[in-house]
Design a protein around this nucleic acid. Structure first.
Length: 426
RNA sequence: GGCGCCGUGGCCGAGUGGUUAGGCAGAGGCCUGCAAAGCCUCGUACAGCGGUUCGAGUCCGCUCGGCGCCUCCA
């Protein structure tokens, strides 16, 4: 199994099974409902865990929830709702929406607010090691003290400007590890530097290391996190001499009208609404059809195609089983082991008429539901029986009338060599 | 401006030196009372221009175009 690593910009071979493989993926900041774009790293993480386990690896998948951030405070002021209440509600939405994907849960889903002691300890170590400095209740990481800074994003330190201007910073390229409480912020935690809350990047270093240790195999997240978020995580952890992530997986962005879907641009489509309109199977097939590392367009047209593809796979189980050739699974497996190439794996799956093999492959992606045969309700079955009788009696007008009636109830009848089959219209 | 990614047939999308990707949509056929589904057949693509090579969608250079990050963002 090999994966593209954005730090070395090369394919990196994973250790042999059973590993272990420890995965950390950056989750969303919770202050509103997540959008479809947010589902990509979640789905990728769940699938990667699933496939690695399938091939004999011992996997731990940690996916965090950022429930303290400038955005949370800002939204809380705007809505006139306490920030804790807002983030708790949004966290519940996050669970609801991702549960609806039907892929199960990551092994651990830590929240920043539940990791404050570890965060404070982490910052203290950086201060003690003179990698960071305290300024009027804030703590900043000193970028100039970390020579490798910029290696992940490819940016050169001399050319960097500023991250978030502050007069308390010694160098405008430095970033905050701890921010002192501001007047509009209704929640804060005690620390050696006074009441405040963690900066955006430190929480991930702390959470990843708390559950996976100072060195782990894979760190994932959207490509937009490469800088500054991941660059800063890397700097914090490596400054303490921790190896941190060995492979950085940055998934491509979902694009809407050729622009990245993002909450700040406002061009978002809620995950919840996509699931309502298209269903989880179509969305998962959509995610399967594009390489994880590349950007993809999201619109009705591609969802329509994904939906039709899902139906096509479903139809395989309505046809006859045909044992596939010996090497079939190997081709599927080879595609996934080669940088988790899901479009290529999906192409192999489309060639199969082998029910067992296809069910097994679909199971890797949480799509075993496509193998389930529809159970028509009694009313539909009764109509279909009447149509069948009319057909036998060669009363085709009546048969066609009943077929139309059946379709209105959401069921399609397909005549077969002997009898018929009822298929749900989607 | 800096860093990075990408440009494949009507659409989506694999493929990194030489044999069919796959899917969606479309056309024709088989099957069917008619359908639907399925099966068979078909389109003959690789942004442009040079170069390397016996041979390039696949390597190199340039040009054009698109996207991301450089500020919160999966």
């Amino acid at each position: 199994m090999r994966l593209y690593d954005s730090l070395t910009r090369r394919l990196v071979e994973l250790p042999s099974p059973p590993g272990p493989i420890r995965i950390y993926v950056c989750g969303s900041t919770v202050y509103q409902r997540i959008h479809v774009g947010n589902s990509r790293p979640f789905v990728l993480g769940m699938w990667l865990r699933s496939w690695l386990r399938h091939t004999g690896y011992d996997v731990t998948f940690v996916h965090n929830i950022t429930d303290v951030d400038d955005k949370v405070y800002a939204e809380s002021v705007k809505q006139g709702v306490p920030s804790r209440e807002l983030s708790e509600r949004a966290t519940a939405w996050f669970f609801e929406d991702t549960d609806a994907l039907g892929l199960g849960r990551p092994d651990l889903e830590p929240r920043a607010t539940e990791t404050i002691p570890e965060i404070v300890e982490f910052i203290q170590e950086l201060v003690d090691g003179e990698k960071a400095y305290v300024a009027n209740g804030d703590v900043y990481f000193s970028v100039a003290g970390f020579p490798e800074y910029g290696s992940l994003s490819g940016a050169r330190l001399e050319e960097m400007v500023t991250q978030e201007t502050s007069e308390l910073k010694r160098d405008q390229r430095d970033f905050a590890l701890w921010k002192s409480q501001k007047p509009h912020e209704d929640a804060a935690w005690d620390s050696p530097w006074g009441p405040g809350r963690p900066g955006w990047h430190i929480e991930c270093s702390a959470m990843a290391e708390k559950f996976l240790g100072p060195e782990f195999e894979i760190h994932g997240g959207g490509n937009d996190l490469r800088f500054p978020h991941h660059e800063n995580e890397l700097a914090q952890s490596r400054s303490l001499g921790h190896a941190f992530a060995k492979i950085w997986m940055h998934n491509g962005m979902l694009e809407l009208d050729a622009a990245k879907m993002s909450k700040s641009l406002g061009n978002v489509v809620a995950l919840q609404s996509v699931l309502e309109v298209w269903g989880r199977e179509a969305l998962l097939v959509f995610h399967l059809s594009g390489a994880w590392s590349k950007p993809v367009d999201f619109d009705d047209h591609v969802m329509q195609q994904a939906s039709a593809r899902a139906d096509r796979l479903r139809d395989v189980f309505r046809g006859a089983h045909q044992a596939a050739a010996e090497c079939s699974w190997e081709r599927f497996s080879a595609a996934l082991d080669d940088d988790f190439n899901t479009p290529a794996a999906l192409a192999v799956m489309h060639e199969w008429r082998d029910h067992d093999l296809l069910r097994r492959a679909l199971g890797v992606f949480g799509l075993e539901s496509l193998a389930e045969t529809d159970q028509a309700p009694p009313e539909a079955a009764a109509l279909a029986d009447r149509r069948h009788a009319a057909r036998e009696a060669r009363d085709f007008d009546e048969a066609d009338r009943l077929r139309a009636e059946l379709e209105e109830t959401g069921w399609e009848v397909r005549d077969e060599a002997q009898g018929y089959r009822l298929v749900r219209i989607r």
